[in-house]
């Protein structure tokens, strides 16, 4: 079935790029300019690539976000909180459990503060709370789709597994550091009320999932189209020797620099990944690319500003530091095992 869909997409891309080229030819012709660049092989492959990838990514985004939201409707954070707060999973197991639940619990960065307070109030240990807070935004459906569509399912799975591992490690380290006093005092004074979790009907789940798909697409489509357009423009033009030299496996600083650059960038995973994908084709090492991607999704300036409402600067700094170090290590590890 997938190959049939792929075939249809390729045909569509062919006709769309044909129509697009005809349009460009007509416009350029009006001004009496030279249209010979339209016969260029590089131009042809770039424009094909653009239409094909755009359609493929949007189709995948629609289908996968829809199903992920259906699955997520069974794991509201209230339930996750209860599971973790009852202390059925202590110590290491608690972190593992929290990181895994982070994948399936729906979470937007606006809810970071209430979720954090809710977990702490329910008696979830600080380290376990962090494992959840790290894996939840990092392992998200948009990153998953972009990685799957552009790099293949193996890299996408690797990204998820690594995200969970980083969340477990960082959570355990923060737990061991005993930093409870670096949480803002008011957090400990908040008493949470009880609310009945409404069990949605199937109709509601489908309805909500579809609304969520539209909401996400509306938010990220300019980045996806822009990213793929830039990626397409780079197609065949990326300076290969340069990339291999500076972003390849033999430059020990590449991962380090990639993570530092990735931290302030936010949520435009959708726009950045098509470009990163072209960079890897041009010689950027895969581990460096993944580390960059993780720094973009797991650490972002807006999220840090939100987290500052509940964390004192010291704990916030420790959080960023541990995450950066772990991501850099993972980047080096992958550069050495992924050929």
């Amino acid at each position: 079935m997938f190959s049939a869909i792929d075939w249809i997409l390729k045909q569509l891309a062919y006709y769309l790029s044909y129509a697009f080229t005809a349009l460009i030819r007509a416009i350029v012709g009006i001004f009496g300019l030279n249209t010979s660049f339209l016969e260029n092989e590089r131009y042809k492959s770039a424009i094909d690539f653009f239409f094909y990838d755009t359609m493929k990514i949007f189709l995948m985004l629609t289908v996968i976000i829809f199903f992920v939201s259906i699955i997520r409707s069974f794991f509201p954070p209230e339930r996750t909180k209860k599971l973790l707060g009852e202390g059925k999973a202590r110590g290491f197991l608690g972190n593992v459990f929290a990181a895994l639940l982070g994948i399936v619990t729906p979470f937007c960065s606006c809810s970071a503060v209430p979720v954090f307070i809710g977990f702490v109030e329910a008696g979830v240990p600080l380290g376990v709370t962090f494992s959840f807070l790290i894996s939840s935004p990092m392992v998200n459906e948009v990153a998953l789709v972009m990685l799957w569509g552009l790099f293949g399912w193996k890299i996408a799975l690797l990204y998820i597994a690594t995200g969970v591992i980083i969340a477990i490690i960082a959570g355990i380290v923060i737990g061991k550091l005993k930093m409870e006093r670096y949480v803002e005092e008011y957090v400990y004074n908040i008493k949470m009320g009880d609310v009945e979790i409404e069990t949605p009907t199937w109709k509601q789940r489908v309805n909500d999932a579809w609304n969520y798909v539209l909401e996400i697409l509306k938010k990220i489509w300019p980045y996806v189209v822009g990213g793929i357009a830039i990626g397409g423009a780079m197609h065949g033009y990326a300076p290969e020797g340069w990339l291999t030299k500076y972003a390849g496996r033999n430059n020990p600083f590449a991962v380090f620099v990639a993570v530092l650059v990735g931290i302030p960038l936010y949520s435009n995973a959708a726009g950045i990944l098509p470009i990163v994908s072209e960079l890897t084709k041009g010689g950027m090492a895969m581990g460096t690319a993944l580390a960059f991607m993780m720094a973009v999704t797991a650490l972002s300036l807006p999220e840090l500003i939100i987290l500052r409402k509940v964390l004192k600067p010291r704990l916030l700094g420790v959080f960023v530091g541990i995450m950066a170090v772990t991501i850099i290590c993972i980047g080096y590890l992958f550069n050495n095992i992924l050929a």
């Binding site: 509201p76 954070p77 209230e78 909180k81 729906p106 606006c110 809810s111 503060v113 209430p114 979720v115 307070i117 809710g118 109030e121 008011y186 004074n189 908040i190 008493k191 949470m192 009320g193 009880d194 609310v195």
Partner: peptide, 13 residues
């Protein structure tokens, strides 16, 4: 106000 929001038991806005 976070105290009020949490008072209702709400973690998702």
């Amino acid at each position: 106000d976070m105290q009020k929001i949490m008072g209702y038991g709400v973690m998702r806005t």
